[in-house]
Design a protein around this nucleic acid. Structure first.
Ligand SMILES: [Mn+2]
Ligand SMILES: [Mn+2]
Ligand SMILES: [Mn+2]
Ligand SMILES: [Mn+2]
Lengths: 220, 220
DNA sequence: AAATAAGTTTAGACAAACCTAAATTAATTA
DNA sequence: TAATTAATTTAGGTTTGTCTAAACTTATTT
């Protein structure tokens, strides 16, 4: 079967919400997609007849096995394009998402498999998220929030979930950017603030608020 | 202003029809877009209010200066993606068009300019058609039909406008493919058939019917 | 100058994907 | 258990892009 851009965006959004909570509600999805709840209900009815979601009125919904497979295909496309944009076209990591949001809907299977080969079968996108392979197999996400990192382990910054300018200002001031290697030296239990050390720099402190927004992975 | 996929497809189609005949008619456009004449009229009214076409009912239409500029942008995107697909992803020349038909509607200017740079500012797409530059400037098309080629000039096959299997069979039999270098040795006035010579092969004859379908350019 | 034919437009429908406002259901609290 | 509240669905619209069938224009013939 073939799906519209809209249907694909819904499937992908449901997939992401399911990671947190296996059954998804109308309002959560409406918020994520910037749509009204009534629109969600309309689409859920449609996706139910297409056997993409399990859905019982007032009871929430989740992807069927088939729906899950399709969602993984869309995520594969999204992340491969993000990798392409960042690696080949030299976009910065914060610019790639919006463009990939459109490119992901060009759904030629052959295109994506050839793109994958051209890129050398990358396993993670520029935000550190795993890229499903051509069968839809996906590795466990190796990221965790900076606030969860154990003491004295070197980690690499790979995603920042807030791109407001106040946040960017703070990051710039502390010299944190994508790929920065750092260690957590101390956790203050009073406010969960962290003392951070970047190689060859004086240590500094970040609030728990900030640390929750920064994702890192264990370095190679 | 921002344009829908549909509006973009109409603009591009009008642009191409204008090359042959400066004012375009409803039925011609309907045929090219595989749509009903009534749909064309609807869209022309819309594009007129957006100042993309000049249009007087029953009198045909043509792109405004603005419409022309936009159409060139879409053609630029289309041909750059075709080049990318063929050159980087190793698609064959006959596979690239349909995929580019979708990719061309991803309209980030920055994406296309970076893609252009990545590809090394190519000037012709895999079919030999010129690629407009970032200002919309486009070179003259250097292609001509094989049937129009003067005697004893080496030319390179760069486009075949009929991809039916009978045509492909004939081309395969005569060893003609994209990039083949050949010379026209003789023109028979009786039926306009041509005697063709490919380097290190015995000469053979093709009908005018075939020669009209094959485009070539002067070699480098 | 009529009549005819060809090309084009209009009128009216429809599906997709949204929306607002009102009604309904489920969950929570008194 | 009966209200109250929060979440969700339904009813009814709108916009975009398409279509068919009927009406209309323009061009071409008698
Ligand atoms: Mn998307
Ligand atoms: Mn990503
Ligand atoms: Mn297109
Ligand atoms: Mn082309």
């Amino acid at each position: 079967m073939n799906f519209s851009t809209s249907e694909e965006n819904y499937m992908k959004a449901i997939f992401h919400l399911q990671q947190e909570n296996s059954t998804v509600t109308t309002n959560r999805l409406a918020a994520l997609l910037n749509a009204r709840p009534a629109s969600i209900t309309d689409m859920m009815k449609k996706l139910k007849t297409k056997k993409i979601v399990h859905y019982r009125p007032y009871r929430g919904f989740r992807l069927t096995t088939e729906g899950n497979k399709i969602a993984l295909g869309i995520i594969r496309r999204h992340r491969l394009w993000e990798y392409f944009l960042s690696e080949k076209l030299k976009f910065t990591w914060d610019e790639v998402h919006d463009i990939a949001e459109d490119l992901e809907h060009v759904s030629s299977k052959k295109l994506i498999d050839k793109l994958d080969a051209f890129l050398g079968y990358p396993r993670f996108d520029p935000h550190g998220d795993p890229i499903p392979d051509h069968q839809g197999k996906i590795e466990k996400n190796r990221q965790l929030a900076l606030s969860e990192v154990p003491l004295n382990k070197t980690v690499i910054v790979c995603h920042v979930s807030d791109q407001s300018s106040p946040m960017l200002e703070l990051m710039k001031h502390n010299n944190i950017h994508m790929g920065t290697r750092l260690e957590v030296k101390k956790k203050f239990s009073f406010d969960q603030s962290l003392e951070i050390k970047i190689r060859q720099q004086a240590p500094f402190t970040v609030s728990n608020q900030v640390a929750k927004k920064i994702s890192v992975k264990y370095g190679t």
